[in-house]
Every structure is written in structure tokens, then in C-alpha cells.
């Protein structure tokens, strides 16, 4: 029978090990982010990121944000991004368009489109794709509420992603948030574009308003106004906060961290 002191130390050690095992990718990413201050961080691979937007009509911006991050993960060894969509949601959300990808700055050859028949197959394909060492990122576009995409499924995906070093981006729509094991959760909305250089009436460079809802990865900052060029993100200072109340800091129904048997929080 070990003494209480020993037991306490054992428990502390177990906790440390659990933390390392559970979120190695996040710990790594945090170290990387701390070097880049103020700017929107270039996140490393191995993360499961949920990206929410309130309405389906923002689908273009959401895909843009995911592909912009995925582009940073493409290397000579990881040369593909797999995009997953349910076959019957193509008309609702639109499909990635080759010339559009080109003008966005993403090579269409690097994108593999998968049209799954149902959510079960989509999740299977996501796991299968992230297990491949040639895949830099998996972008799963799920336009409707899916029962199968529960905490267990997201936990599986997050472990897979952490093990193989590729990132998974779950594109979700709506205001509801469920318990999930995602490392990061973003909420994105399009913002008014920049001033057009030659034509004041024309849409200028794109702007997104991005909020980090979950995952303490960046100190003191959870909100960014981002721009995108072919070479990477540009960060702008947020201006006129609170003019649009929906985008400003509303209280969202947050997920309650799930407590598993070992008493350690899994979702925080």
C-alpha cells in the first residue's frame, strides 16, 4: 500500500501522461504559435478543427478558410487535400470549382473530391484518408445535422489526426454546438470586403471575421479579421465592434465538457 504522498504523485504523473497522450498535437501547435505574435498563427498539422458558420449561404467563405489553412500544410510529401461531401448536398452547398480554386490560389490538382452516399461512409472515408501519409488535410463538408457525427466519432477523428499528422477540418453549419473532441473550434462569418482599388463600387479583397470558440491556443486573442492572398493570411485589427450584434460577442450555447470514467475533462 503506497503512502498518500506517493499516491498523489502517481496521480499527478498519470495526468501528465494522459495530457501528452491525448493532445500532443495541440501542445506542439501551442509552442509554434507562441513564436508568431499578433498575426494569425500558422497552425501545424495533426489537429481536428471544427469550423462553424451560422448559415449555409456562407459556405463559400467557410470553404475558403479551410482551404487557406490546408494550403499551408501541403508539402512535397503531403501532396493532397481530400474534400468530402454528401452526394445529395452538392446543390445545397455547391461543389468546389476548379477555375475558382485556381483564382483562390489553390492548385485544383491537389484536391480529391469524394462524394459519399451517407454520413457513415463519409466518416469512413475521412478516417481512411487521414490515415494516408500523403494526405495533408481532410475537409469534411457536412451541411446538415448528423446523428452519427457525435462525440465518439470526433474523438476517433482527433486521435487519428494526432497520430498521423494531417489535419481534419469539419465544416459545419448552424448555431447549435454539440460535444466534440475537436482541438479547435472556429466560428466564421464573412465581413465586408476591403475598399476596391480601382472601383469603389466593386467588391475588393475578401475579409473574414473569425472567432476562436474552443481551444486555448492563442493567448489573449480569440477574434481575428482576416484577409487572404495567395501567399497566406493577412491579419487586420478588428474595427467597429458590436455594430452587427450577431457577429459580436453573443452567448452561444456552449457544450458541457464530457466527463469520462477517469474523471478527466475530455473536451476542454
Amino acid at each position: 500500500m503506497p503512502s498518500p504522498d506517493q499516491r498523489q504523485r502517481l496521480a499527478a504523473l498519470r495526468e501528465t501522461i494522459a495530457d501528452i497522450e491525448r493532445k500532443p498535437a495541440l501542445a506542439e501547435a501551442r509552442a509554434l504559435v507562441e513564436q508568431q505574435q499578433g498575426e494569425f498563427p500558422r497552425l501545424a498539422g495533426g489537429l481536428l478543427q471544427e469550423m462553424f458558420t451560422d448559415e449555409r449561404r456562407n459556405a463559400g467563405a467557410l470553404l475558403g478558410f479551410a482551404l487557406a489553412q490546408a494550403k499551408g500544410l501541403l508539402t512535397a510529401q503531403r501532396l493532397a487535400v481530400v474534400y468530402l461531401q454528401l452526394g445529395d448536398e452538392a446543390q445545397k452547398l455547391g461543389m468546389p470549382y476548379g477555375p475558382g480554386l485556381l483564382s483562390f490560389g489553390f492548385d485544383p490538382d491537389a484536391l480529391v473530391l469524394v462524394r459519399a452516399a451517407n454520413v457513415a461512409e463519409l466518416l469512413w472515408a475521412a478516417e481512411e484518408a487521414i490515415a494516408c501519409r500523403a494526405v495533408a488535410a481532410v475537409v469534411a463538408d457536412i451541411g446538415s445535422h448528423a446523428k452519427l457525427l457525435n462525440f465518439t466519432a470526433s474523438r476517433r477523428l482527433s486521435l487519428r489526426a494526432a497520430a498521423t499528422g494531417g489535419s481534419i477540418f469539419l465544416l459545419r453549419y448552424g448555431q447549435g454546438r454539440e460535444a466534440s473532441a475537436a482541438h479547435l473550434r472556429w466560428r466564421l462569418s464573412p465581413a465586408r470586403s476591403a475598399h476596391g482599388r480601382y472601383d469603389a463600387k466593386a467588391p475588393g479583397a475578401l475579409r473574414w471575421l473569425v472567432q476562436l470558440e474552443k481551444g486555448a491556443i492563442i493567448k489573449n486573442q480569440t477574434e481575428f479579421v482576416l484577409g487572404w492572398t495567395e501567399n497566406g493570411f493577412a491579419t487586420f485589427t478588428a474595427q467597429r465592434r458590436g455594430t452587427d450584434r450577431r457577429i459580436g460577442g453573443t452567448t452561444l450555447p456552449r457544450a458541457v465538457p464530457a466527463q469520462l470514467a477517469d474523471g478527466l475533462p475530455q473536451t476542454a
Partner: peptide, 9 residues
Amino acid sequence: PPRPLRLLP
């Protein structure tokens, strides 16, 4: 030329 990222079928 400007082309959209998503195209409706």
C-alpha cells in the same frame, strides 16, 4: 478572371 470557389451544379 474572378471565379467562385463553389459552383452550383
